[in-house]
Amino acid sequence: MSALLEVEELQVSFGGRTAAVRGASFRVEKGETHCLVGESGCGKSVTALAVMSLLARGGQRSAKRMRFAGTDLMSLSDREMVRLRGNRIAMIFQEPMTSLNPAFTIGSQMAEVMTRHKGGTRAAALDRAAELMGRVGITAPGMRLGQFPHQLSGGLRQRVMIAMALMCDPELLIADEPTTALDVTVQAQILRLLAGLKRELGLSILLITHDLGIVARVADHVSVMYAGEVVERAPTAELFRAPQHPYTRGLLSCVPVPGRVQRDRPLGSIPGVVPAIGPGFAGCAFRSRCAHADETCTRTIPRRRAANAHDYLCRLEPDWAELQPA
């Protein structure tokens, strides 16, 4: 398999103070769905924005390697990047309102993406927009094309964003929490749609989500992020079967499942919060919350191999959990 997107040791900081991403590495193979999961604030969106070269002002990125379809993304000019974005790489942003312009109708915004990259008439672009809106389950596309973003419910806006991302037939779709605003029936429909595009068009997807249910059902590979690092990478079934990193294990243990919820008990969570991490931080960033931390966890942590394509960042040996008394 060949990687469509390769990210190696990505670093992102803001104003030299916040180290938002600290050496994250992962690869999205052609035609696969790769999920990025992790705690709020761990750097998932910033990672995606760094790949797209869309970091907010003050954001600095560096990487040992960042390639898309063999092209070095770090060396592209702004103009070359503009040509790639929305075209060969499309992104669905976490907050749809930030990427929809409130002053223009849905139709004119969707048509603009297409005419900018692919040319053609506005009428043809609007036809394609209406077709894609139908595919993401929007009824009365004609009416919706004439509406402004604030007139749509959260879920409709998100479906518009998905349709807009597909306008130019991208090779890579980066989707940041694409279905969190949707109810579970529509979510299932959108995920089935994405799976169909992946199957039929070979679309590759980098999917950012907190929802481990989604991860389990759609991902081929998973990267788990914590405090700006990828702390565990594995094929999906393997990750759920034999998670190694204590953070991954904690995360998996607190997923509530309907019908199995214990209402009289608090919901399970990992105690504590992600520490503020400045430049020069060393050791494992999870140590203030980890039940297995010892003094070696303040030093450089090795990346260990648990199985084929499964590695993690922790002092503990593979399958440590089985060796521990319960």
Binding site: G137, I138, T185, Q187, A188, R217, F240, L252
Partner: peptide, 23 residues
Amino acid sequence: LLQSVLTPEPGKGVPDIGLGDVM
């Protein structure tokens, strides 16, 4: 709705609960 919930069980895929694609 209840049938559409995605529990964290790998390999099960995304169910089609037969509501159709039209909203």
